[in-house]
């Protein structure tokens, strides 16, 4: 296959304990560390491995967002992607519009395989990959924990609630990845230098001719109802008594 397209979303780093702003208008992002969505890093790693096995010739990374997302794209290039595309928009992009943007890029680039994270850890929607597959009219293999390519088909093992499901899909297709698919490589300093020379195209959203999908409005943010810290018991006997008191054993 020729080209693999990978999505890289800029999100609040997974180690940050996200706080809701006191006025309920959003979450605190000022001065907060931003990173590539961890699932997207796994998606990129998989694309790079496919290319390194000689099964694809080019890996393109795509981000949708403000100019700041260039940072994440540069990291992707340092990991080994060949080139990057930033679709520039100030608005945060809903999953269906994101899927339409991917579709527009796929048409421009003649992509054979799209690999995305199974969800972004900010809005936790888990929609974009499936929606892209629908918009594109192509197969989807979500929550992948193993991928093998065989000519014009891919065999994907998926993590489902009862175990592992394997499906076979015709290419082109969309794969969304789960955490256990691989372990992303670390970026080395020389790679960061090299990445600066790799092409990064910026396309204003308005130039793509993509129609924005009907919006789901967020009216309010609030912190979750916390659980109360309970009691500590001294020993097993204390634990058994506490469980009996609650009628649990």
């Amino acid at each position: 296959m020729e080209k693999i397209l990978v999505g890289l979303k800029r999100v609040v780093d997974y180690n940050v304990r996200v706080q809701v702003k006191s006025d309920g208008s959003g979450v605190e992002t000022d001065g907060v560390k931003m990173s590539i969505n961890p699932f997207d890093e796994i998606a990129l790693e998989e694309a790079l491995r496919i290319k390194e096995r000689g099964e694809a010739s080019e890996v393109i990374v795509l981000s949708i967002g403000t100019a700041e997302s260039q940072q994440q794209l540069r990291t992707g290039l340092a990991m080994g992607a060949d080139r990057a595309i930033l679709v520039e928009t100030d608005a945060s992009t809903d999953p269906l519009t994101a899927a339409r943007i991917f579709q527009a890029i796929i048409e421009r680039e003649n992509v054979d395989l799209v690999i995305l994270g199974k969800q972004a850890i900010d809005d936790d929607n888990s929609q974009t990959g499936q929606m892209l597959a629908a918009v594109w009219g192509r197969p989807q293999a979500t929550f992948a924990s193993a991928v093998s390519i065989d000519g014009n088909t891919a065999r994907v093992t998926r993590e489902v609630d009862i175990g592992l499901e394997t499906i076979e899909i015709d290419l082109p297709a969309v794969i969304t990845v789960d955490l256990r698919l691989n372990e992303p490589r670390y970026v080395k300093l020389p790679d960061i230098m090299k990445a600066k020379k790799k092409p990064l195209d910026q396309i204003p959203f308005a130039d793509l001719g993509v129609e924005t999908a009907p919006q789901i409005k967020t009216m309010k943010f609030e912190p979750p109802e916390g659980r109360q810290r309970g009691i500590m018991v001294e020993d097993v006997a204390g634990l058994v008594t506490a469980l009996k008191d609650k009628g649990l054993v």
Binding site: D94, P95, L96, A99, D124, N125, S126, Q127, T128, G129, Q130, M131, L132, A133, A134, V135, Q140, T142, F143, R158, E159, V160, D161, A213, P214, Q215, I216
Partner: peptide, 23 residues
């Protein structure tokens, strides 16, 4: 919002030209 629903419902939503409300 099990593996089954998370897989199929967004595909349905896109076919209906809408975003999905997850979870």
């Amino acid at each position: 919002s099990t593996a089954f629903g998370k897989d199929v419902m967004p595909r349905v939503a896109a076919l209906l030209d809408v975003n999905q409300i997850s979870d």
